[in-house]
Design a protein around this nucleic acid. Structure first.
Lengths: 138, 138
DNA sequence: ATGAAAAAGATAATGATTACTATTTTAAAT
DNA sequence: ATTTAAAATAGTAATCATTATCTTTTTCAT
């Protein structure tokens, strides 16, 4: 019987070795890597994996809420294995992306924005731009 | 004499009809348009303008601090004719980008982040994600 | 007005991401 | 354990926003 299950998003997500390796790899770094970086890394352990598979699974993992996709500067996406919402710092010189410490997410800001702009707010993001510790030395 | 002027960025920026029209067009809307939207709009007044010229000038205007380039969702850039730093709301359903009212930029947050993370902060950005007034009706 | 530098216009190239397709794998039902 | 249909993979081609290239035109200081 075509029942309730059919109401789900798009069928059903199966567990695969590829996706598990991709997630493990992304979770093992805090460098906010690109899809290509992950591909190169994962290929060492699973040489036949396809770049398309990496992209497809990063998309799936994002939809599952397991990871975040970041778009600073438009050229290409970066991925963050930490799905909890947190802020980022982007170095305008070397392009490095880091997690920001010591800045708490203020949930009531969302409510204020929702009220003032007649919208519904799910979450917000915040990025700080400047020179990272390495680049500001020079 | 090759003098101080040579120290400048990249020579010297000349005034062109094309760039002025592009800036005027961008300043005349608050819809945060894409490069292609601007191109189509500008073409009505200057039919021979090239898409490359639009991109080149949007880049120049950004470097001049006259406009902002926004990258939410990675697919393509949007441009904002308001160069003063302000926050944005992105509708996760229809993709519309709006300015956020009633949320003041807290400059001391930058200082805190700089202190806690040993970086230099020039500015920050903030984006709220959710449903716009149109989309939340349905 | 003149000339060198800068920008435009037209078009090709780039490159990250997505789409396509035949084959393989997963996992539920037998 | 075997079967089977759906889902995912590998490999490759296609997409498309953005850049680069190159020749001609325009700008602007002299």
């Amino acid at each position: 019987m075509k029942d309730l299950m059919q109401e789900e998003k798009k069928g059903f997500v199966r567990k695969t070795r590829q996706r598990e390796l991709i997630l493990k790899t992304l979770r093992s770094t805090n460098s906010h890597p690109t899809a290509d970086w992950i591909y190169e890394r994962v290929k060492k352990e699973m040489p036949n994996i396809s770049l398309g598979t990496v992209y497809r699974n990063l998309g799936t993992l994002r939809e599952m809420g397991e990871i975040m996709e970041l778009n600073y500067g438009s050229k290409f996406s970066r991925f963050d294995g930490n799905p909890e919402n947190h802020y980022h710092f982007v170095c305008t010189k070397c392009g490095k992306v880091m997690d920001v410490e010591g800045c708490s997410v203020d949930r009531e800001v969302d409510e204020m924005v929702a009220r003032e702009n007649n919208v519904e707010v799910f979450f917000h993001r915040m990025e700080f731009y400047g020179l990272c510790s390495d680049c500001k030395e020079k």
